[in-house]
Design a binder for these strands. Structure first.
Length: 319
DNA sequence: CGCATTTGACCTAG
DNA sequence: CTAGGTCAAATGCG
């Protein structure tokens, strides 16, 4: 039946919506380009408009590209190996993390089993989660800090579980975004301390943050002390930020272990990425770009991303 | 008090 | 069945 294009109707709808929007934006852009700014006095405004339109168009394009690219959302978002630790054994890392067969079973709520309402939710979440992008990085903490878990990001995580893993000395901790319920942010991460090197943690992220925290940590309009913008968490990563950044830029150790096909090499987009933020900690710049959120289903219009989007490609990472 | 963590039970994939 | 992942009640903490 639907052999190649197995998109759910939601995805199709989204697709057509995006196409529509893209067309409109393009038209607008064209027209704008043909007719120079009506008010010559305010040229900066025109520039802003142009930027805006470009942004819109490229956003649409990217979205479409993503959708077409991988029907089952298998984008790996710029995995950054933080510490160039040599792979001690390698990660087992479920090779078939993405199943490629997104059978869109609808949840016919049938009559009778209302008891399993939250169970369905569980199932639903599990299924949904499976489609989320996944990547991992190794983080070395500085021992003198005595910190237990590495917190290399500015996100607020909430621990929701801990498990002893077979063959691992240390338990694995499970975290999810604090704003899961409030903002539908389904990003999770799990932290596993390395067996041999207890200063190394392996952090596996799953899903991308869509919460507002993901985008705008500090408001740029208030030139106050920018030191305390981060929430009490001191970044603890690594020893040489310079070399690290250098190697990141040149080498970019991409650890795409979540790819089962082994073919989906994520190349950085040439278009201005979705957003980049960086920790201005004097320590390390962590650049993360987000792929698509799994658009499969949420009709939550309250997620406003654009409002906090002004920092567009600012590179304040110092080398 | 409202949040986060702990921790055993529960669930599911393989 | 087992191992890994998640839930949720209990507990802790500011």
């Amino acid at each position: 039946m639907e052999g190649k294009d197995m998109l759910s109707w939601e995805q199709k709808t989204l697709l057509s919506e995006l196409i529509l929007g893209l067309e409109a934006a393009k038209k607008l852009q064209t027209r704008h380009g043909q007719a120079p700014s009506p008010s010559p006095s305010s040229s900066p405004a025109a520039e802003t408009d142009e930027i805006l339109m470009k942004q819109i168009v490229s956003s649409y394009e990217r979205s479409l590209l993503l959708l077409n690219w991988s029907p089952s959302v298998q984008l790996i978002p710029a995995p950054v190996t933080v510490v160039p630790v040599e792979n001690s054994g390698g990660i087992p890392e479920s090779p078939a993390s993405i199943n490629g067969s997104p059978r869109s079973e609808d949840f016919a709520d049938g009559g009778g089993s209302s008891e399993s309402h939250h169970r369905q939710d569980y199932l639903f979440n599990a299924k949904k989660r499976k489609m989320l992008p996944k990547w991992s990085e190794k983080v070395r903490i500085s021992p003198e800090r005595g910190l237990e878990g590495p917190q290399d990001d500015v996100f607020s995580w909430r621990k929701y579980g801990q498990k002893d893993i077979l063959g691992a000395k240390f338990p694995r901790s499970y975290y999810r975004c604090t704003h899961r319920s409030t903002q539908n942010c389904w990003a999770t991460k799990q932290v596993q301390r390395s067996d041999n090197d207890p200063t190394v943690f392996e952090v596996t992220y799953r899903g991308t943050h869509i919460c507002s925290q993901a985008i705008a940590p500090p408001p740029p309009t208030s030139p106050e002390k920018k030191e305390d913008t981060r929430p009490t968490k001191s970044i603890i990563i690594t020893q040489k930020p310079k070399d690290l950044l250098q190697s990141l830029k040149t080498n970019l150790t991409v650890q795409t272990d979540g790819l089962d096909d082994g073919k989906d090499v994520f190349s950085f987009p040439d278009t201005p990425p979705f957003y980049t933020y960086d920790i201005i900690n004097g320590d390390f710049g962590h650049v993360e770009s987000s792929p698509i959120f799994d658009v499969v289903d949420w009709f939550n219009p309250t997620v406003e991303i654009d409002a906090s989007f002004p920092t567009f490609l600012h590179e304040s990472v110092y080398f």
